[in-house]
Design a protein around this nucleic acid. Sequence first.
DNA 1: CGTCTAGCTGAACCATGTTCGGCATTCTAC
DNA 2: GTAGAATGCCGAACATGGTTCAGCTAGACG
Lengths: 157, 157
Amino acid sequence: MPNMVQLDAIDRAIVLELQKESRLSYAEIGARVGLSAAAVHERVKKLERKGVIEAYRIQVNPKAIGLQVTAYIAVRLQNDATCADVAPTFGDFPEVEECHSAAGDIDVLLKARTATPEDLERLLYRIKRVPGVSRTTSTVVLSTQFENRPLIPVEPE
Amino acid sequence: MPNMVQLDAIDRAIVLELQKESRLSYAEIGARVGLSAAAVHERVKKLERKGVIEAYRIQVNPKAIGLQVTAYIAVRLQNDATCADVAPTFGDFPEVEECHSAAGDIDVLLKARTATPEDLERLLYRIKRVPGVSRTTSTVVLSTQFENRPLIPVEPE
DNA sequence: CGTCTAGCTGAACCATGTTCGGCATTCTAC
DNA sequence: GTAGAATGCCGAACATGGTTCAGCTAGACG
């Protein structure tokens, strides 16, 4: 399988713990998984090098920084356009948080956040004007039950 | 506005930097925003207390840990069921990363990741059997252009 | 058997997080 | 105005945790 990295049970436990709380000290993680701090340190650096750990980030509350509106925008493209054509332009809109190519009667799926419904309206207008875009269908989020849950590493059979 | 926190330009810069790289030292952030390490430290702690910074996390590559398939699952509920009713059950499925209540001809929107298409099929079957669920429509992600982009804090008018 | 490698440990060292006293500025209330 | 309080900043001191290292052990391989 492409990109797949072989992780043992301890690596999986480390990845899980760091997803929940990346500020844990190596000593603390070591205590939880049964290793010394130095050994945990070595494994974490290896996970970074292998591309399992892509970045260290903070999770911010969107509402607290003024982003009250979340929406998913399904985009249908014209037949001669591809997701790779339009994605760079969508990347220029800072409101767009995610951009996927999708299967089904949708070609591109975006996740966007704006301060107000009016800002979402303006964003949609700009998206519709991107060359290659045929039609958009938006789904506005009313409330979020949960988000950003840790991914559970798959254990090899 | 509910949950809204007043942030000045320096707070917004700090939040932005930490979203990109939460391992930056306070001294380094201070150099970028024009403050001492101690002052940055104080602001960050305040941002945590106010709920702007919700958690420190790592971003993992889903494919590297064996999660090859990403899908959005639109759920239609029966008339007597609400998102709050079914969300706890969806929360029991570790494959489900997000759960939102939505407006439009969809009631609940889920984001899920599985190792294989067969695992997605099994997950869908379990979701369909959750009491209150009427119908599901899945959109499988073919490729991801970008994801997890930093949120830009809104500046007050 | 001997050698090589991978992975672990504890100890030492160094960078960074954290706390603190003091100073400057602003705000409030008289 | 002005006294007093509050806020936010600084540099310095201290404590914690990240990082490096030498050495040990176990397993793989000839």
